[in-house]
């Protein structure tokens, strides 16, 4: 298979960022391309689909559009009332095998992995930099680990997922690929005053 080309291309450069500090305020890292499989169902049969996901893939489907559930390397984000995103690593084959068993009357699936660039933002000022644009309360109480939100930063649609982390707040931000460079330019400029570093792409 040909390599999946990063949307950030030549604008992505690892290294220190902005104001030097003892501890980097913000660490940014582009993530490797994700397998992103979207499953959409209909209200009358969606409960049954969720049950078979639990049975076949061993993952409970979240009851709301905020919580992320994870099992092995597959996470489920409920991005709409009857719409799920399977974010998967090597297990994508299992997920695809499952979705192929579904008829169009039950649910439909769409591959959207190439449409999103994923950026990981960590560090003590991760919340600060996100809130420069994100109108979402990222406080522990309002936005604990394994919660996500779909929102907008600098007019760019984003999905922000707070990752489980023992080392300070960590977020994965999913950005539409065609906006990725613009978002990156915004992010780097917003992060520069807080100091930090850009890591080599994962």
């Amino acid at each position: 298979m040909a390599d999946i080309r990063s949307a950030l291309g030549s604008v992505y450069k690892a290294g220190p960022l902005g104001t030097p500090r003892d501890f980097p305020g913000v660490t940014l890292q582009e993530q490797s391309p994700r397998n992103l499989i979207q499953l959409s169902g209909w209200p009358d049969s969606f409960g049954a689909i969720c049950e078979s996901i639990a049975a076949r893939l061993g993952i409970r489907v979240p009851v709301d559009c905020l919580t992320v559930t994870t099992h092995d390397d597959v996470s489920i984000l409920r991005v709409g009332p009857t719409r799920l995103w399977f974010v998967c690593g090597a297990s994508s084959a299992r997920v695809r095998a499952f979705t192929e068993t579904l008829g169009a009357g039950d649910a439909v699936t769409t591959e959207i992995g190439h449409s999103r660039t994923v950026l990981r933002i960590t560090g003590s000022e991760a919340r600060t930099v996100l809130n420069r644009g994100l109108p979402i309360d990222l406080d522990d109480r309002a936005f604990p680990e394994n919660v996500f939100a779909q929102s907008v930063i600098h007019h760019i649609p984003v999905l922000v997922h707070r990752l489980p982390s023992s080392d300070g707040p960590a977020f994965d931000v999913y950005v539409s690929r065609e906006y990725a460079v613009s978002f990156w330019e915004w992010l780097v400029e917003a992060a520069a005053p807080l100091g930090g570093r850009i890591l080599e792409s994962a």
Binding site: D64, P135, A149, Q150, V152
Partner: peptide
Amino acid sequence: PYCGERDYVEF
């Protein structure tokens, strides 16, 4: 009803 209280910029 699905995402909770949100800012008008999302709508």
